[in-house]
């Protein structure tokens, strides 16, 4: 390491002006000591009350119901009849299901890392003060404003379809004739991955907010101590950003496994061409709502839940090694 030594993070952090400011506010309120041991547990449940009510009243029941339905032949109209693990067995003999697993894994493996790296790089780029920052930030968020609108689906078909922008470009540059990326089974999925990455605004915002939480004083102190830019980045910015990298990672994995909207709007719900964009939840949706096999769809959903839960548990286990919390 270089000649300068950095002070431990927590020590520098104590200097945070802001903290002192809040502390003064508290002092002036001159509150009497009321805390006793054990009160905190009650306070915990007190603050958790709305969420607990929501969990027990709105979330848990439908979840348990769907778990039960996954062991039935529920068809949305007649009473569900218990069929044991039939749905779970059927799944692994269903070629379309296996196809949807393959499509989804490809999507997750490509979308999650690229999405996050792009969002992080752009956030870092925007975080440095440059002129017109507000405008760039807004501009980069534009794609994410659209969500799953009809306009996006039309536009994507126009850009990547036959005779579209990309098709014309490839013809002029490389002389490739009649390229139709969005309607070819080999390439359709990749156009959807590009669409997902293009909508990188949400993780970018979270990174920006996270960067904002890093006290400027930390950087100032380190600069006074003579730390270089790269050293400051790797010793201060990156460690303090890890909680948000972790958050975005977990959330991107969950949402990528559940990806639905891009395929739904671009392939009009079919998952075509030739099931090449048949995402897991799209197949689940078709199974439930067009084919009335809600029991089977529920089983698929619970298998997905277990898969995501295992991956998340693994991430949480490793997070102790690389995620830095200042507590």
């Amino acid at each position: 390491m270089g000649g300068t030594t950095l002070k431990p993070l927590h020590e520098v952090q104590k200097r945070t002006d802001l903290a002192a400011r809040r502390y003064v506010i508290l002092r002036t309120m001159s509150l009497k000591a009321r805390t006793r041991n054990g009160q905190s547990s009650m306070a915990g449940y007190l603050f958790l009350t709305p969420w607990l009510v929501g969990l027990l009243g709105l979330t848990a029941l439908p979840m348990i119901a769907s778990l039960y339905l996954s062991f039935t032949n529920y068809d949305m109209i007649n009473r569900p009849r218990w069929i044991g693990i039939g749905n779970y067995v059927k799944m692994f003999q269903d070629p379309q299901y296996l196809m949807s697993v393959k499509v989804t894994l490809t999507y997750v493996l490509l979308n999650v890392p690229i999405h996050l790296v792009v969002a992080l790089l752009i956030a870092l780029l925007l975080h440095k003060g440059i002129r017109g920052l507000h405008i760039y930030r807004a501009v980069y968020y534009v794609p994410s404003l659209f969500g799953g609108s009809v306009a996006i689906s039309l536009l994507w078909k126009q850009i990547f379809g036959g005779g579209g922008l990309v098709s014309n470009l490839l013809e002029h540059l490389f002389g490739l004739q009649n390229v139709n990326l969005i309607d070819s089974p080999q390439t359709a999925l990749y156009t959807l991955i590009i669409l997902a990455i293009w909508q990188f605004g949400s993780p970018m915002i979270i990174f920006l907010a996270g960067l904002q939480q890093i006290p400027v004083e930390l950087h100032e102190a380190a600069t006074i101590d003579g730390a270089s830019t790269s050293k400051r980045f790797f010793r201060i910015t990156l460690p303090l950003l890890t909680p948000f990298i972790f958050f975005n990672l977990v959330m991107q994995i969950i949402s990528s496994f559940q990806a639905f909207t891009p395929a739904y709007i671009v392939s009009d719900g079919s998952g075509g061409p030739l099931n090449s964009t048949l995402f897991y939840t799209l197949y689940l949706y078709q199974t439930g709502f067009s084919n009335f096999q809600m029991g089977y769809a529920s089983a698929m959903a619970w298998v997905l839940l277990i898969a995501i839960a295992i991956i998340s548990a693994f991430l949480f286990a490793t997070s102790k090694k690389w995620v830095f919390y200042s507590e």
């Binding site: 029941l61 439908p62 119901a65 039960y68 529920y74 949305m76 109209i77 007649n78 009473r79 569900p80």
Partner: peptide, 14 residues
């Protein structure tokens, strides 16, 4: 129990 009520309601259309 509540879940069971909900589930049994799933077939009520008929």
């Amino acid at each position: 129990m509540a879940a069971a009520c909900l589930v049994s309601a799933c077939g009520q259309g008929n």
